[in-house]
Design a protein around this nucleic acid. Structure first.
Lengths: 339, 339
DNA sequence: ATATTAAAGTAAAGCGTTTAATCAAATAAC
DNA sequence: GTTATTTGATTAAACGCTTTACTTTAATAT
């Protein structure tokens, strides 16, 4: 059987309290006993049980990460950074894919609480403010990533979505596009609204017509991007460019164009959002709004852990700047391929 | 504060043992008291603490999933399936990305043990048999996915890598390719060796020359695929096809060709392995050996949980058949584009 | 030599459960 | 109407650790 603190104490000829102290570097213990205990621990290959320790009110050193889908490259990347930072600090992360499903989300949260996780990171989940409020009221450390709840005092890390949408659209405007469509995500998400907001702003500034038919709402899938862009391309007066609010949608847009024998970027310019690995593997490589994913993941974990460690502090709202990664999926509509 | 079993017991006017019994549906309790307790639980919003329960020797309902990198789409997809199946059965999964780093792997395993996880799923990690043996000796349920250790009695789910390599290569042979290169993964992995083995077998059967210069060993990155394929393409007598042992490498191969203004599939045919989302988003879409990822992830979780539930049973080794997903990255070398 | 203080270690309670051993009441058997 | 049996609920110990308050021993001061 696994050795317990008693085994160590007995073999070292001390009390369990003493062992506990050397394990946790607390209280005062003499050099000699300390050494002795350490030796015995090694001999017995003793490791303290986190669950027993947690029962006495200490941390579980486990946090929950709620994302819509861990298989989505954007969230997978975030998860990886969160995990890495956690590992550095001695925390494990349990992954929870909610599929934007409110019930699943609630289930996961309930489970996490039963397991006494030390905190929860929420990445772009659905708009169930009540659940969130309840969590905060219960004093469970929570941090948001890529999701904004300005009305709540909670640590948050996100990108300036407005600027992102604006930058993407401006890029297209500057290239001379007149009819620019946007593929939005679920408008229930603040981030999504902001991106579209940025899109509108860019159009306005350029005094371009503002065709509501070119604003389509979808979700987070290649398939949605494909079918919606298909509709756009079948329009009599079709757009020459589309701004997709995430890379998955952008890829769908590219596929729809390909299916109609339209060339990217000659016949249709596409810009995405996120800058996941997918943006680099398409052909042509995708021009996309790059989120500093690495930094975001790391930062949100840092904030959560500060909260866990109980440093009483005011909540932070960290807004990072996105940057347009210009690649080959965008081009002026005026310069046709034949030239 | 969070209500404990004592609060419920007091308010319901029964002993904590009674509450415990209704919670766990064990022992005998009268209908009336049962109802009463249930009501109070609801009122107080009581949920039993998993950590306290675990301390008494019961499950933690948490398992560890070790993969090289959760941000790699193949593993992300597996993780998602494992998580889903776990969720159905009431288990959480903590993710551990090892980066093929032996030390990190050992650290994670040690941490997981301290946390008393109920079991561990190992996905394609490095060849540290000793750690594995130790785990099994300690009676910690373990299951392998996409990784083979025939000498160990441990539940395993994998694809027939030999057949996979053979199928991929045969496909190219049938198209008339004579010089076919292979981009292998780390040959320390049995799966990697098997794929190359299948490759060789296909060449042999076709009595094709067997040029060792065309067998390159790399890892799991786009970058490696790009640089190695670059070398191949710069050869005086360059191959007309390359079989990449994973989709990431295949994408690198495509990029290398593109950089040299070679057309895929006209100038170079490429087949990958895994059939991740990446294979569908490249242009041209990638012909690749499809692993039944969904089924694999689900199955490995099922095996692990059977083991956890202690059904004494003989370990299973589930070998699934891969299937070639033929897309547009492969083509006969004889039919040139001009025709 | 005695009083004071600091250092090192111990005993015991507590964390929130589960469970084996009991016990009391109700029902059945004779 | 006793005695045996079943049913329903309780008691108390155990799980492996942390921590507070206390005791002992050693060192220093008086």
């Amino acid at each position: 059987m696994k050795p317990t603190i008693y085994d160590v104490a007995r073999k070292a000829g001390v009390s369990i309290a003493t062992v506990s102290k050397v394990v946790n570097h607390t209280g005062r213990i003499g050099e000699k006993t300390k050494k002795r205990v350490l030796e015995v621990m090694k001999e017995l290959n003793y490791y303290p049980s986190v669950v027993a320790s947690a029962l006495t009110g200490k941390n579980t050193y486990t946090i929950g990460l709620l994302v819509p889908d861990i298989a989505n490259p954007f969230f997978a990347e975030i998860a990886r950074r969160v995990e890495d930072r956690g590992h550095e600090l001695g925390f494990n992360v349990v992954m929870c894919s909610t599929d934007h499903n409110e019930e699943k989300e609630a289930q996961y949260i309930s489970l996490l609480k039963r397991k006494s996780v030390d905190g929860i990171i929420l990445a772009s989940v659905i708009q169930n403010v009540e659940i969130l409020k309840a969590l905060i009221a219960e004093n469970l450390p929570v941090a948001l990533i890529s999701r904004d709840m300005p009305e709540l005092a909670v640590d948050t890390v996100l990108v300036d979505d407005f600027i992102g949408g604006y930058t993407a659209t401006s890029h297209l405007v500057k290239q001379g596009h007149q009819r620019i469509a946007v593929l939005a995500e679920n408008l229930g998400l603040a981030s999504s609204r902001e991106r579209v907001h940025g899109y509108r702003k860019a159009l306005e500034e350029a005094s371009l017509i503002h065709d509501e038919d070119l604003v389509l709402v979808s979700d987070f899938s290649v398939e949605a991007g494909r079918s919606l862009t298909g509709e756009l391309l079948d329009l009599p007066d079709r757009p020459t460019a589309v701004f997709a609010c995430n890379d998955l949608l952008a890829i769908g847009a590219i596929q729809a164009a390909r299916e109609r024998n339209l060339k990217i970027p000659d016949d249709l310019s596409v810009v995405g959002f996120d800058n996941t690995i997918l943006a680099t593997t398409t052909d042509p490589p995708l021009t996309t709004v790059a989120q500093p994913i690495q930094e975001m993941g790391r930062k949100v974990m840092d904030l959560l852990i500060e909260e866990i460690e109980g440093k009483s502090r005011t909540k932070q709202r960290v807004v990072l700047m996105p940057e347009l990664a210009v690649r080959q999926s965008t081009k002026s509509p005026l310069i046709k391929e034949g030239l």
